[in-house]
Every structure is written in C-alpha cells, then in structure tokens.
Amino acid sequence: MDEKELSIAEYEQTFIDDLNELEDWFLQYEYLLQISADLPRIPSERRKEENRVQGCQSGVWLEMAYTDGRIRVTADSEALIIRGILSIAVDLLDGRTPEEIVSYSPRYISETNIKKQISTDRFNGLSSVVDTVKQFAAGAIRRED
C-alpha cells in the first residue's frame, strides 16, 4: 500500500489502529520509541529560536519548506518520546499539499492513549506543532492566490 495514496486522515487511522491495538502504554511507549528511530535529527546548528516551537517544554524544532506544490516538514526534540510522537506528525504531513494540510484535524493524540499519558504542557506543545504547520500551509496557499 502506498501511504501517499491515502488521505492524511486515512493514513493517520493506521497509526491510531496500531496504538490502540497495543492497548498497554508499556507497548505503546516502545512503539513510539521504535518509530522515532526513523525521524532524522535536526543538527544543533539548525536549532534556532525562530524554528523552535513555542509552548513545548522539551525543546522542539520544526523546519518547513514549500517546494513544487508540496509542504516539506521535519521536526526534532530533546526528548525521545516526543520524537516518537513527532515522527507521526512528520509522517502524516511531510510531502502533502497545503490544501490537504489546512483541512486536516489531528486525532492521533486525542483518540489514543497518548493523550492520557502525556502532560497537558506536552499535549499543548504537540498541538502547536501541527498548528504551526497548518499556518505555514495556509500561508503557502495565500501566496499562490
């Protein structure tokens, strides 16, 4: 199955299904750590205040670009578990059109055990990550118009 043939919501459902099938936070935590291994690092010289996501107590950095009609996203964090959760966001959003991203409403935190297991601060911070990408996508649409 080619992931990019799925809508963001459909692809997101595969992550939700994985996590909910695991049921136990011990396993879900391990799952998030394992998928985080694929998330590229943002080297320290590129971790600047202007690409640091506000509202995240663990440092979270986001890099975005608009190329050939697609939004490119990568993210990184100082905390392993946040990298795991970010890897889902990046996997969902990287390479998508601005229109797809603007119309997306995330569910992978609120509809899985992640929401119960992370602090409110982290929840708000991770919500900021998706919001920031959506704002960037909206800006890309405005520039095109």
């Binding site: 936070w25 011990f26 935590y29 750590l33 690092r41 107590q57 663990s58 100082e78 905390a79 392993l80 578990i81 990298r83 602090s119 601060d121 982290r122």
Partner: peptide, 22 residues
C-alpha cells in the same frame, strides 16, 4: 539524544523503569 526535559518530565529510561514496575 534523550536530554529530556524540565524536572516534571522523566527521561525515557526512567519512564521505562516505572512502566516495568507497574
């Protein structure tokens, strides 16, 4: 890689230990 975090958050190894004990 796992420099964590403010004092109200735990590093991953500590979290894994707590989860094991539970």
């Amino acid at each position: 890689l796992d420099q964590a975090t403010p004092c109200n958050h735990a590093k991953s190894e500590t979290t894994k230990k707590v989860l094991l004990l539970y």
